[in-house]
Amino acid sequence: MLVGLLGLQGAFLDHIPHLKRCGVAYTIVRDREVLGRIDRLIIPGGESTVMSKFLLEFNMLQLLTQRIQDGMPVWGVCAGAILLAAQVDGRPGSVGVLPISVTRNAYGRQVASDTQPVDVPQLNLLNYPAIFIRAPRIDKVGAGVTTHAVRGQDPIFVQKDQLMATTFHPELNSDDCFHRYFIGL
């Protein structure tokens, strides 16, 4: 299994220690050629505007959509969740394959970023310290989307078939629970 890390901008290298501990091979994805031969993809935290811009400019967007339709598992972290969302701030999202609506930076600027203890029954986690950084808020989930964890009323970890999205940053914690779950999809 070859896990791709979308390497256009952001915290993609931060996933490498986790993937190494999980014993899976990984590669950085910056072009169509590599995108065409990976088995799954992590879209990392970073700036969604930058990643969506270069997915388009480097002619990768259509291929990515095609590969997702063909069943490739994808995990979007924070900015990655924004890229996957069908609706972003009331407008169509960039990749747009996951039927959720999100609002960017909905919890505020960096001084409002925080850690919240959350329960994730699907992963047998209680009081998991979820790190939210200028996080998007998932306002609505569409048909077929399962919510695995919430912050108050807001979904923060959702899944539809082989697509998953977290609005917080498991890669900044030292455990590999979320990576193992993603590899198992």
Binding site: Q9, G10, A11, D14, E47, T49, I131, I133
Partner: peptide, 29 residues
């Protein structure tokens, strides 16, 4: 952790809202 999100990106000096928009459109993180 927030600083990690800037990685592999470019942070640009801007002096006006117009320059800020140019930077954002060009791909500044």
């Amino acid at each position: 952790g927030f600083a990690e999100m800037f990685k592999n990106g470019v942070i640009m000096d801007v002096t006006t809202p117009e320059h800020a928009r140019i930077a954002q459109e060009a791909g500044a993180c």
